[in-house]
Design a protein around this nucleic acid. Structure first.
Lengths: 159, 159
DNA sequence: TATTGTTATACTCTATAACTATA
DNA sequence: TATAGTTATAGAGTATAACAATA
């Protein structure tokens, strides 16, 4: 692969950035996943800032859109958020008029989450930014490689 | 691919987890990267807890080991940590006797970071856990796919 | 004046415990 | 008694501003 700066075992002092031997980290999937995720989230904030969407609220909108009536507990589970932390976000989204909470008729403890028309409009606008955003983030990969990456990630997570 | 629960546009109420339509998120690289990273970090804490290593300190040890004399500013840059946040971790690692700070002779503002023998021993023990840990995390992928994933992540990050 | 390292501090994200209302 | 949702709160991670020492 990339013949990286070979810096043998010299005791050379203060190596400056760019000349560092990072090969061990480059072979560490967890570290590379962290850097990739940081890159995607930073890019997301730039791209979606005008709409006020964050990665978390984007995912929340998408799941409610595709699963109207989903309860907070299921939503927290699939998004890997703790329920109390999700509730805080839902409170903001509801008081801003983007989502609605309905009491279930069959189990009056349960909440059914729905998008309001305002929320549906917001995620629809967000969805229009998604393709160009992903394209920019994945620019170094060709189409087949982009599909491959997604498939490998899905397999790791056993979806 | 996986013929996922097809749930057409029924207005069906309170879909329970496992029956949710998550196809949009599964096609969202940023979201899948977040889930994969969470999986790797949770697995890391289980595997390395006995040694007291975190993902952050593991990476710090590896970079100093492979680049003795590296200054904090370069370290922060490659690990994508803000310098003040890295300094706090370095203070703990130094007072625990794992690393040492030397003043540079040529530029007396600069710090050269080194592992102590104790620190070198710790990362050596940590390195022995790395292969089995990565193998467990990547178990759903065969060898070629594991290499492919790493290479795609490296390309995204232009390493 | 600019740069390296450092401290102090604020903010966001995440985690746990406890409460309510329904079952 | 157990469960879904909620509140309060503590902790970890991450951000900016300001300062000391040196260049």
């Amino acid at each position: 692969m990339s013949p990286k700066a070979l810096r043998p075992g010299t005791k050379a002092a203060q190596p400056s950035e760019g000349l560092l031997d990072l090969r061990a980290l480059q072979r560490t999937p967890g570290f590379m996943l962290r850097l990739a995720q940081l890159k995607f989230f930073e890019g997301f904030y730039e791209e979606f800032a005008a709409l006020g969407l964050t990665p978390a609220t984007y995912a929340i909108f998408v799941v409610i859109r595709d699963n109207p009536g989903v309860p907070p507990s299921s939503l927290a589970s699939v998004l890997r958020l703790r329920l109390p932390n999700l509730i805080k976000i839902l409170n903001e989204l509801e008081s801003s008029g983007f989502i609605k909470r309905n009491r279930s008729k069959s189990d009056r403890r349960a909440i059914e989450l729905m998008l309001t028309p305002k929320g549906a409009k917001l995620i629809q606008e967000g969805a229009r930014l998604t393709a160009p955003y992903n394209k920019k983030m994945l620019a170094p990969l060709d189409e087949a490689e982009q599909r491959s990456l997604l498939e490998l990630l899905n397999r790791i997570l056993r979806f």
